[in-house]
Design a protein around this nucleic acid. Sequence first.
DNA 1: CCGGATCCCCCATGATACTG
DNA 2: CAGTATCATGGGGGATCCGG
Lengths: 131, 131
Amino acid sequence: MSEQAALYVERWNNAPEGPSSDCPVRGVLDKISDKWSMLLVMTLASGPKRFNQLRREVSDISQKMLTQTLRDLQRDGMVARRVYDTKPPSVEYRLTPLGESIIVPFGHLIEWAGHNHPQIGAARAVFDGTN
Amino acid sequence: MSEQAALYVERWNNAPEGPSSDCPVRGVLDKISDKWSMLLVMTLASGPKRFNQLRREVSDISQKMLTQTLRDLQRDGMVARRVYDTKPPSVEYRLTPLGESIIVPFGHLIEWAGHNHPQIGAARAVFDGTN
DNA sequence: CCGGATCCCCCATGATACTG
DNA sequence: CAGTATCATGGGGGATCCGG
């Protein structure tokens, strides 16, 4: 393992309260592992968007989950919601600085996924063929 | 947004097949968002472990999900399983090089979480108080 | 000690319909 | 356009028993 990785492991295992279930880091990670949160953050990363615009861009999200996920992101301070008093009304969502700040670490994960998904596919083929 | 972040966004939106539901990157990310996968990877990051040892360290995982998650990780080539023909039998799990390679990008996310969870907590308090 | 098999519950998600 | 309200469902995951 690289030294950098070892550092992360040590920090993880010595995190406040340890890696137990009430560890605040695990609380944040649970949100990251939400089905739609990061997808919406990455979609908003290219600029502010309106409700139905998001719905079109993330075409397989239901209206309910879009509303719900946006509210959660707003509650966590990742997304700002602004209502324009036009007619018909329009609502714009944009990333806050906090929301933008997660793009970089999440981007590393995307890069890893892009780089390694062929290996994972190969491993699966071997595993499924062997058993 | 930082230039680095903008780069990630561009790559994401120009990913193979785009950010659609059958994008291979989303397939990998779905695994990352699994409830237990990354927790086990980080636990195994500090060295090979036996089954019940993992069970003790991740105390709130059920036996069923531990078995299931380890099998999925093995299938994806992230974890290697080795059986020692002792009596009683013992089984050791360890990260493969592929498994170790995800520690760094995932570590960035943990660092982000550790650094920003106070802000998130504060944002929630404001939101819950305002509404 | 390491798990496979089974039962079952419940909540996240989806579908649909309605409102300001 | 941007949601809310309500109902249906399915599979993730816990509890438990069993076997090698």
